[in-house]
Simulated assay, not measured.
Amino acid sequence: MRLSSLKRIWLNTSSFEWRDKVMETGGGVTENACAYDRNVSFFYEHVGKDISRHWGARDYAIVGVGLPICFVMVLSNFMVMVAVWVNRRFHYPIYYLLANMAAADLFAGLAYTNLMLNTGPWTSSLTKQQWFIRNALVDISLTASVANLLGVAVERHQTIMTMQLHNKMTNRRVMLLIVFIWALAIVMGLVPVMGWNCQCQLDQCSVIAPLYSRRYLIFWASLNLLTFFFMVAVYARIFVYVRRMSRRMSQHTSYSLDHNETMVNLMKTISIVLGVFVVCWTPGLVTLLLDGILGKASHAPVYEKYCLILAECNSLANPLIYTYRDKEMRRTFKWILCCLCRRSCGHQGESLAVEVDTLQPESPQVEDISEVEVENKTQNGSRQLIERLR
């Protein structure tokens, strides 16, 4: 009897200790236990991040302003892709990569649209799979943009160091590079879904993204910031080289000067794209990095919305940069809009065949001779382009 009584007392004491430990963790899950059966709201409450239960003025403002911006973002980047496809002067590796960057920005517009439609009071109704997918789409778009910019930096470095305007890379290699970029982006975006999250380490949950591991945020933000620094260093080296070569070539023929000016203009356009990308994304990545290192002490949610808006503006800025910097791209945009509106298509189509020195040299002596031969053989190139667009 004494043995059984002691055993019963020990069991009761153990149960009380276990219950007290559960209550201390707030919600019935210890810090080392896996919370696979918990919903999204549990993780938000665990890190102290509020979820709007009712629609307020702020929620309406975010969705009301964000959705039109996303629509314009998708439409403008789609026009960049169409412009590269219909205009033969853009059929070079550098422009294929820029079109792929526009595809990444278009994808970002779709990702932000999905985010707008699953934010605010809608967040609490999401399943964990839907929440992971919502955030993975934004991560994929950023990784694809960074990988594209890195590919453009390497392509420009290899091309300009030989004082050429366009790379001799085959279309097959460009397509393989584009496929690799998207494969890498998808894998990086799905890493948290595949296991690198905080469901089994609640003490490692992020404040900005409550289901993400803070260690993953440190890795992801650090990798992107290091890539930024590398690309800036590459472009700085290219500009120093181009300026030095420009002085040496100043005594050569006018074609050499035109060719060099064309190269510099293209480099300036790409550098502006890179600069805007770094400016728009660096605050967000630094905020994620601080969240990963400091956790709640970083007060990251205070700056989260502003960083997201700034990052969203980047995908809208690139088509504006192409339009402002590139006369041929601007002319192609006008032609596309005219064809869509079915007004003055023939007149604008005729102007599409005019050579513009912002894209390539007027002289056919060096590397664009095959394209000039094709244009000489094609008398009604604009009409063919109209048929292709239709």
Rank of each mutant, 00 (worst) to 15 (best):
L285M: 11
E155N: 05
S271W: 06
W182A: 03
S298C: 01
A221K: 05
S15C: 08
M79Q: 15
E261I: 04
S254V: 12
F219Y: 13
Y216W: 15
L385W: 11
L294K: 11
N224A: 09
N380I: 10
G48F: 04
L211Q: 00
S246V: 05
D291M: 00
L337E: 03
C280H: 04
L115Q: 10
G109L: 06
M263S: 09
R58P: 10
T170I: 05
M245Q: 14
R172H: 01
T269H: 03
C198A: 15
S382E: 06
V273T: 15
Q164T: 00
S256N: 11
G48I: 01
V354P: 05
V80C: 13
F230A: 02
K128M: 15
N376V: 10
D357P: 01
C200W: 09
P210Q: 11
W85D: 12
W85V: 13
V276H: 06
L142Y: 11
R383E: 15
S298W: 04
G28C: 06
V154P: 01
T113V: 00
M231Y: 06
P121R: 11
T13K: 13
L223G: 07
L67I: 15
T113S: 14
I238L: 09
N376D: 06
P361D: 07
F180E: 04
L226D: 01
I218N: 05
I69V: 10
S351C: 06
I133T: 07
W182E: 02
D326C: 02
P210N: 09
L115H: 12
T170P: 00
A209S: 12
V374Q: 12
R173K: 13
I336E: 05
T25D: 15
N39F: 10
L142M: 13
T30I: 11
E304T: 02
H91W: 12
P301F: 02
P93A: 09
L320I: 11
E31H: 14
Q129W: 08
N380E: 12
S124L: 09
A297L: 14
I181F: 09
M194N: 09
Y255I: 07
K327C: 10
T123P: 10
C338R: 12
T30M: 08
N148V: 04
S382Y: 15
Y92H: 15
R247N: 13
I133F: 08
F90Y: 15
T123L: 14
T159G: 08
G292K: 07
Q204H: 01
S124G: 14
E31W: 13
M329W: 07
F228I: 12
E31G: 08
H252L: 08
G109Q: 05
L310G: 05
N135F: 12
F277I: 00
L11W: 00
G349F: 01
S4L: 14
P121N: 02
M81V: 07
W281G: 01
G109V: 04
Q164A: 09
Q348R: 08
M245S: 06
N148G: 03
L266H: 13
